[in-house]
Amino acid sequence: MKRSSQPLPTALAIIFIISYGINLYVQQQLLSALWLIGISLGYILYRSGICFSAICRDPFLFNDFSTARAVLVLLIISFAGTFMFQIYSNVNGMDIPGKFHSWGVHTAIGGILFGIGMVLAGGCAAGTLQRIGEGFILFLIVLSGLVLGSTLGAAHFSWWTTRFASFKPLFLPEIFGWAAGGILTLTILGGLFYLTFVLEKYPSLQNKEDQTWAQKN
């Protein structure tokens, strides 16, 4: 059952991508490269059906670990590449690249709130943008909530960091050493990957129906 594309919207999208890309290129070359990367990110997210909010939600609700596994693959490769670049930067005397931020109680609270929020809204930050591109009017509301919440969160940031424990940014190999730190991260990620296969056999939050199915097999 082959269906043709929607020629008019497709043409509009392509014309817009090219013209806006040229506009960005004139402004700054880096921006046009980022434009193309952003478009690829969106394309891949849609076609491969990766949904970051499904990582932990689908295992809980449907005993479905496929997204969790895909994200672990993403993490392992992304970690390997970043680590190699970090070693390269270190050897060449540059700053260690990557994302480093303060951590502490506020990180944990933030994680919990984010986890609840993405399950309720039905999409994480990337998923919200993705669903806007798919034509969901609803996710414009989620996006405005996201912007509002972000602003509030930034405003209250000092309240959380001054009242509860917060530690300076840390690069794990600084404690464990480069080799041990890398191996540790890789072991944990690999262990989690293995764990998904173990947990798949034990439905916890499932419907009775699923449980009987799991027992049969």
Partner: peptide, 17 residues
């Protein structure tokens, strides 16, 4: 129509029961 994950599958499962 217009329903997002996880509701679509939750509702499907409910109906299937």
């Amino acid at each position: 129509l217009g329903e997002v994950c996880p509701f679509s599958l939750l509702k499907t499962r409910q109906e299937l029961e």
